[in-house]
């Protein structure tokens, strides 16, 4: 009985000794530009940088305040109907871009977006398949891995039934990430939740401020990394002159 009790006490204590979840706080700045190329075709350029605002030491490892990620995503959008779009992209991502331990990622992706009216807003479903080539700094190679992402998004005007100039709107989403093959820490590897308030500036586009919460499985032991980010984004949309 005594042995069982000792075993139970040790077993239950293990997680508190070994769990190495990390919690970062910072900011994400993004630029989101869309414009027409042809009648049914549009381009989008999404650029962002993610900053860890505070240095911290966890289990004798120092995590300095720094730029965590640079993200450059040009994409082509085919507008099949106003409720159904298809897109494809080549995306470049650089993790720890200003530090010596940086790593590059080249990514191709294809996605379908389907939206439907919900109350006075819009509910949007996005499914994206990614082919990822992430740099291994030890071997110098870019092994292939793939990922599936599903995003459920809701946005609605906050003043009236449509968004007009000088009015506020609400935007929120949750996205699940599933690593399919290649090197991975977990199949269900990431989850992002966002809620923000935007403001329509008219010809200057829209400005959006929100809170983004990212959960990421950071190693094979399933330790997690939590990112608490204040997100500031400028959205511009050039329109076709008819």
């Amino acid at each position: 009985m005594k042995q069982v009790l000792v075993f139970l006490i040790i077993s239950l204590s293990i997680p508190s000794f070994l769990t190495q979840d990390l919690n970062f706080k910072g900011a994400l700045f993004a630029l989101n530009q869309t414009g027409p190329l042809a009648k049914k075709w549009n381009y989008n350029l999404f650029v962002s940088t993610t900053l860890d605002a505070f240095s911290q030491e966890v289990n004798a490892v120092i995590y300095p305040a720094s730029d965590l990620q640079l993200y450059l995503q040009p994409s082509l959008i085919y507008v099949h109907t106003s409720n159904l779009n298809f897109s494809g992209s080549y995306t470049y991502q650089r993790n720890n871009p200003l530090r010596s331990n940086f790593s590059n990622e080249h990514r191709l992706w294809q996605q379908v977006i389907f939206s439907l009216p919900f109350t006075i807003g819009k509910l949007t479903n996005r499914l994206r398949y990614e082919e990822r080539f992430i740099q291994n700094r030890i071997t110098g190679f870019y092994p292939f891995s793939s990922r599936l992402r599903y995003q459920l998004c809701y946005n609605r005007p906050l003043q009236g039934k449509s968004l007009d100039v000088n009015e506020f709107y609400l935007n929120m989403y949750n996205e699940c990430y599933f690593s399919l093959n290649g090197t991975k820490n977990a199949t269900y590897s990431e989850n992002w939740t966002y809620a923000g308030i935007g403001y329509d500036l008219g010809n200057m586009g829209r400005i959006e401020l929100g809170y983004l919460y990212q959960i990421y499985v950071r190693n094979q032991a399933k330790d997690l990394r939590f990112l608490n980010l204040i997100q500031l984004m400028w959205v511009t949309n050039f329109k076709r002159n008819n």
């Binding site: 989101n32 549009n42 999404f46 995503q73 409720n83 977006i113 949007t124 946005n155 959205v235 008819n242």
Partner: peptide, 12 residues
């Protein structure tokens, strides 16, 4: 009148 269809807005 022809309606211009604009893309559905998403991020990342």
């Amino acid at each position: 009148e022809e309606e211009t269809e604009i893309p559905i807005q998403t991020q990342f």
